[in-house]
Design a protein around this nucleic acid. Structure first.
Lengths: 206, 206, 206, 206
DNA sequence: AATGAATGAGGCTTCATTCAT
DNA sequence: CATGAATGAAGCCTCATTCAT
């Protein structure tokens, strides 16, 4: 399973090749869709031949797996830091949204992949964790929103299930157009999104 | 051998067979993704054999084409009615959002297909109109938002490009979970979405 | 098997429809090749739908069969008249060549079909007669040429097998470019071909 | 599982695999007709599986393309050598015919393919060069024959267009029955064909 | 690590053919 | 006679995967 067998070679990039290839794969998967992407396209983008990828990975699925689980691990670690900080509902929501945009910044192709393909991939046993993550997500948001309503900081006249979907989709969908290094930083975008989500786009009456 | 066995209607609907099959295809494409769907799965869902689909359609792509162009035609017809009604920016936005949710109601699978696959499909000549539609979309929203800012009904402190993406995505993404005939009607959802988009989810300070 | 069942209809072309369709089929087969021609192309050319051809013919093969056997029957009838006339070798050759060109005139598409596809079709039981015809052909020509050599009218320094192939091919291949009603009639062409075959294209030394 | 079992040459010819496969394909195409040949038949004849051919070639059409263009390239190179040698009309014709038979000897299946399928294949853009070659052919022969008539070595009483077709067909059709290594060599056959074409099969009166 | 050549399953599509109407 | 709708086998091609070198 481990790709290394020699110790004294001159070939420079030893460790990190795997991550490099995964980044390439994620980019191509995100650009074309997982099912529509061939292993050869990934290999072309990496400058090697199709078969050579199998030295590094067991299968196409394994690549998607590693891409997604890395992203989700990173994301939940960030979320857990926020959730453990004992903030109020509103501050928590702000922090979660901000972390989400930072995640998009770090894992953009993975996020796109997650959005477009997780429903489809999740049917396999190997991707069970996608469903788990999905459920944790829903619980987190629902309880956060309910807490906010209870604390009086969020409107009580809206359907919580609807708001959950609204906020969830709104944040992640940005991965489809966000490009790191653009005019607006991830934090800029987070700030504006939060303004919209919290206060709306309508000019305040005050 | 015969795909039906009921006697009370030995002759299938006759007219509209094409539309029937397209509806089935759209459903399957939306559920599994266009690339991940096999022609046999569509045929199975329609109760015929794979090859039989080619009596009605030239290719898998032709099905997607017809599904998408029908949806977009219907959508733009509705949008054009709204845009030609001479409403204010805020009322126009409300009407456009409402029409969008009605479109989701009528064409849910097509909308899902459009969202998930249009980026990928649009590379082919045949789907040129997807790009055109995309551009009209962007123009419509951008000018509408700018008009609203000018009229003083929308906030001026937000990036218009960002708001455009926010509103656009927010509306269409709902197609991924909306099910006609559910607890909330399309108009109910539109109303709540509008409330969120216009006023935010935060409890007003007034 | 017989296509007629009614006696009192008004539809004009009763008998002869079959021949009409066969002529159309032969034309298309000749133009595109038997294997490369679809039943639908034949039907299109005849102005009906694919399935409708099966009212008249049992199968695609049956059409080729009828086209080829009709042509060969006609051809051998003509040849037999010549061969039974008790002519000298040279006159017989002239008459056979002339009849061949008349056959091309009457059955051009069938001749093309015969030339291009008989080798391939002859593998089936149903087309056994193609092989038989081929053999009769070879025997006829070989004995005619040998007779001519014996009679002193044909050169003795040439390989008879080679001459046989030369004459045979030379004549039939003309079907590929001949068009009835062109500048030269079938008899004109026959005359010139005979001049070439008998005397050569070189200017005589006399 | 492995398609070879011999041990003395575990590594196949390596270089020239492509040419090997093309030769096999040409053989099968010539024997059965291009349209009637399945890719599996070609693969079977080559001792590999159907899909494996696509490692070497893009499509069935690409194989035909390469077979035909290789043959035509070789042929025109030979013709151009002859045409550039400054020979008289009669000697040029002799040399062209001789080269043609040598071409048949080297490329027999390609010649058969060219004869039987070029008309049909030439409808596609990719095979445009077949039409070009056809035109060059006609020009070459026509001007050669006219030159011969002007020089007084060819008969003036024959239709040049007819003679062109006669000579052209006469030569190439031999590919259908010629087998390298048979009783007569390509040069023997060329000599006899030339005798027939130039002097005819009739016994000279002198 | 990577290449070159294959495998083999399965996908899209075509097409001869059938049949109720 | 003809249509419309299907069947089902087979064809071309793709692609994830394997493996000797």
């Amino acid at each position: 399973m481990s790709p290394r067998r020699r110790d004294t070679e001159a070939t420079p990039p030893r460790e990190g090749r795997r991550a490099e290839l995964l980044a390439t794969a994620a980019e191509v998967f995100a650009a074309q869709g997982y099912a529509a992407t061939t292993i050869r396209q990934v290999a072309d983008a990496a400058g090697i031949l199709g078969g050579s990828l199998y030295y590094h990975f067991d299968s196409k699925e394994a690549m998607a797996d590693e891409i997604l689980s890395t992203f989700l691990g990173d994301m939940w670690a960030a979320y857990d830091r926020v959730l453990g900080a004992g903030l109020g509902a509103r501050e928590t929501l702000e922090a979660i949204v901000a972390e989400s945009f930072r995640c998009i910044d770090r894992h953009r192709p993975a996020v796109v992949l997650y959005q477009n393909e997780s429903k489809h991939l999740a049917t396999g046993e190997r991707f069970r964790y996608l469903l788990d993550s999905h459920r944790r997500f829903e619980e987190m948001w629902t309880s956060l929103l309910e807490r906010g309503v209870a604390e009086g900081v969020f409107r009580a006249d809206l359907d919580v299930g609807l708001v959950y979907r609204f906020v969830r989709d709104t944040v992640w969908v940005a991965a489809n157009w966000y490009r790191p290094g653009g005019r607006l930083s991830a934090d800029d975008i987070a700030k504006q999104y939060l303004a919209m989500v919290l206060e709306g786009i309508q000019r305040g009456s005050g």
